[in-house]
């Protein structure tokens, strides 16, 4: 651990800056800028990550203007079981997801071929292809953008934390005392705003890379059209006899991890809990909605058929009745 810290300190000052300069000078393909409306994904090659946290710091800096500035004291909320989520005095926390920390470095010590090895990798929103947070948000505050970003609009979110609950990784984090709920019924409904990685949507729109990608001295992350990213992930996995996470999880995400170690081993080794997502296999949370949508197509057809059948039977019966009277 001591080695990794000294390495981090060194890298923060030197390599990170060099990486940023090098990356920012690269022209961005139109697809990456989000101009084409193509679904973009990121590739995270965990072999390359040295845990320097340059991405974490760059994220904090690039997104500082989006961070919550809550009004205090918080309005009293009813009933008393409603808990305040306040991270405004702990803005410096970097070892988990918070409303002020949208990416963090997870560490896994695993034994590979009898040798202990440490892997580090950035964790943040997976940007699912069919995100339950956006699908199930009752206000439309969380939504998926055409370029594959899942974004929570801080101006609309009421902080009910439904997105956090339905997210298979429980990524979004709440800050009380900020947002629209203050103008509606602060005591009775809402509880702040939910925050998470928005993959620097505004930087992408401006033709820049997401801050975490741009600053990385080791080029751990890469962004591009999903099909290309998947292709590259498979090529790396094949080359290193490795593993992929994020391609199929939750029906497919736009964050693809490649690792030389099975993800079940990494999952066992990482610290998990609130703000520290797991690496377990995840089945498609919205699969039920896809299947039942088909039932919604069939049901009206069945209804129409039943009514027509009833009409036909009644007409036939009436005809027989009238025939009998003749």
């Amino acid at each position: 651990m001591t080695t990794s810290i000294s390495r981090r300190t060194f890298l923060k000052g030197g390599l990170a800056a060099a990486g940023a300069i090098a990356a920012s000078s690269l022209p961005l393909p139109a697809a990456v800028k989000g101009e084409t409306g193509q679904e973009l994904a990121t590739l995270i090659d965990i072999r390359k990550c040295i845990g320097c946290e340059a991405c974490v710091e760059a994220c904090k800096e690039a997104n500082a203007a989006k961070f919550p500035e809550p009004e205090k004291p918080f309005p009293k909320m009813y009933p008393s079981r409603v808990k305040v989520s306040d991270w405004s005095d702990k803005r410096e926390v970097m070892d988990r997801l918070t409303p002020y920390n949208w990416v963090f470095i997870q560490e896994a010590r695993v034994t590979v071929n009898g040798k202990e090895e440490t892997y580090t990798f950035p964790r943040r929103c997976m940007h699912c292809q069919n995100p339950p947070c956006a699908d199930l948000c009752p206000w439309g505050a969380a939504r998926k953008l055409k370029n594959g970003i899942t974004r929570i609009d801080a101006d609309i979110c009421l902080g009910g934390a439904k997105c956090e609950k339905v997210c298979p990784w429980h990524i979004p984090q709440r800050q009380t005392g900020v947002g629209l709920y203050l103008d509606i019924l602060p005591g009775l409904a809402g509880n702040g705003v939910m925050y998470k990685c928005d993959r620097c949507y505004n930087r992408l729109e401006a033709g820049k890379l997401p801050a975490c990608i741009e600053v990385c001295p080791e080029n751990v992350q890469k962004i591009g059209p999903r099909a290309e990213i998947i292709k590259e992930a498979h090529a790396i996995a094949k080359e290193i006899n490795g593993y992929i996470y994020g391609e199929k999880e939750n029906g497919g995400t736009n964050t693809i991890y490649v690792s030389p170690v099975p993800f079940k081993d990494l999952n066992r080794a990482i610290e998990k809990g609130p703000g520290r997502p797991h690496l377990k296999p995840v089945s498609d949370a919205m699969a039920h909605a896809d299947n039942l949508a088909k039932a919604m197509v069939i049901a009206p057809i069945a209804g129409i058929a039943a009514a027509a059948g009833k009409f036909y039977a009644a007409s036939k019966k009436r005809g027989q009745h009238e025939e009998g009277r003749k």
Partner: peptide, 24 residues
């Protein structure tokens, strides 16, 4: 939320069937 959503979807299918039946 997933349970209530599932029930809501099943109910929506039944409601669509019933409304189509009534309409015709």
């Amino acid at each position: 939320y997933y349970k209530t959503h599932y029930i809501h979807y099943v109910g929506a299918a039944l409601l669509l069937g019933l409304l189509a039946y009534w309409m015709v």
